[in-house]
Design a protein around this nucleic acid. Sequence first.
DNA 1: GAAGATTGACTTCTCAATCTTT
DNA 2: AAAGATTGAGAAGTCAATCTTC
Lengths: 160, 160
Amino acid sequence: VTGAGVADEQALRAWARLQHAHAGLARSFNGHLQRAHGLTVTDFDALHQLMRAEAGRMRRTDLAGAVGLTPSGVCRLLAGLEQAGLVRSADSASDARVSYACITPAGRQAFAAAAADHVAGLRALFAERFDADELAALVHLLGRLPGAASGERARVAVSA
Amino acid sequence: VTGAGVADEQALRAWARLQHAHAGLARSFNGHLQRAHGLTVTDFDALHQLMRAEAGRMRRTDLAGAVGLTPSGVCRLLAGLEQAGLVRSADSASDARVSYACITPAGRQAFAAAAADHVAGLRALFAERFDADELAALVHLLGRLPGAASGERARVAVSA
DNA sequence: GAAGATTGACTTCTCAATCTTT
DNA sequence: AAAGATTGAGAAGTCAATCTTC
């Protein structure tokens, strides 16, 4: 016993904690966002991506990557947001295969309203448990997992 | 600008990364476990908890906490596992409200078969990205999030 | 043939409500 | 009335297959 055993235990524990932390937070945020603003966590995430995107629009396939869904999942998600008037569809001039998702003024408004609440809750949650260095470490470590850092807007290049 | 802005950004990023990392890993593990052993990640998790539990059984409500589901979710999960013969139900002698979930011999076998595969994949995934200290740090940080460390078997008390 | 988008069928899980036992 | 278990109804997302355009 147990060089490998320890590593196994630790890997299993890391995955379990990731899974359970996600489940708990998702449930809690979903409940709150849903009640207060009629949005799911994923809705919020999608609006967030679109807000940050050039001209408030993204190709549907890029949005899929950015919010961590399959193309299929994004299709369903956008159907809901379009029906709610928060997003609209637009075709590409140069490639008839692609369809853009564009955030509408109503979408921007809805996002702004929800963001105030949601971000404050998020900040409080982490602030209660981590100092700035720890939070940075957590972000950094999570970022190395596959898929975790996908869809983050590239930082504007700072140096020449 | 932006003492609060930076903290907000960081909190938002932490949550996004947690969410996306979870989505990606869950999809990948689910696919593999499903194909190779006919189990979902949650099935595996439940069997794992039962394997570690005293006498291979837990109250359904405790299992819910341990795998990060609602009572309702556990009910559905166990229905599937019982139908597959991996788990059976048992009533409590002392409290007629509670129902135990007991892992069966077939369940132990199924778990053992799946665990070899799954744990190896898990260990490889983390080993590729983190050294032992980093993995320990990740486990520790995740453990502070609500719900993350629930359902971990208490370590046997080491000191008298 | 590959990329993007979409749909049908299905699974999993949640919430809210209910029933039983304490 | 609170705790545990369960069920009906529905949301959300997956996979596999399909259609269209490149």
